[in-house]
Structures are given as C-alpha cells and as structure tokens.
Amino acid sequence: MILQCLIIFACLAVGELIVMFTGIKFPSSIIGMILLCALLKIGVVKYENIKGVANFLISNMGFFFIPPGIALMLYFDIIEAQFWPIFVSALVSTIIVIAVTGWVYQLSNRKRNG
C-alpha cells in the first residue's frame, strides 16, 4: 500500500518538477503517467506492486471530477450570457469528434489490413 502510493506520487512529483524546471505547458499528471508506463516497461516497477492502488484510482476517476464540476456554479453568469451558442456548438462538435475519430480509425485500420 505504502509502496504503491510511493510509486504513484513519485511519478507525479517528477512530472511536477519537470514542468517547474523546463516551463513546458503540459500537465504534470500526463508526464507522470508516461513515466509510470516507462518504468513498468523497463521493469523497474512490477505490475503486482502497483495494480491495487492503480485500479482503485482508475475505477473511481469519475468521482474525482465532482468538485471541479460543482465549480460550474461560479460561472453561471458567463455561460448564461451566451448559453445557446456555447451549448449547441459544444454538443454538436462533441458528436462530430466522436464520429470522425471513430470512423477514421476504422477506415484506415481496415484499409491497412487489406
């Protein structure tokens, strides 16, 4: 448990330090994720030593978004002013992105396989 948390927080800490020292505009958490994946790949971290905490965090990820979601109450006035343009463009564009991403993958994968 302690070791598992150590691995997660160490990867995140390295991510934070990289962002701090290089000034790159990239989320520290994604750098930490790539680092964890690399450590598993080269065998420094064993899957057995991380799976418990990792599965717990991943299976509850949706819940962790609730506070930033509740922060929406702070922005009601900005959203209200242009509600329809914001809502319709976000909704339609989300559907378009899902369709285009999925279709392009399926078509290019099919083509490649013959």
Partner: peptide
C-alpha cells in the same frame, strides 16, 4: 465547499498517473 471538495479533487492527478498501468 472547496474546503471539502479539494480532498476529492486532489486524487484526480494521481488517478491520471495511474492510467500509465493499463497503457503499459
């Protein structure tokens, strides 16, 4: 509210790091 909410939101970054496991 955020005095409470921050303890939940805190786990968002570790959860994203944890995605490195299925990725691997």
């Amino acid at each position: 509210y955020n005095e409470s909410g921050k303890y939940i939101e805190f786990w968002l970054k570790p959860a994203i790091v944890a995605l490195g496991v299925p990725l691997y």
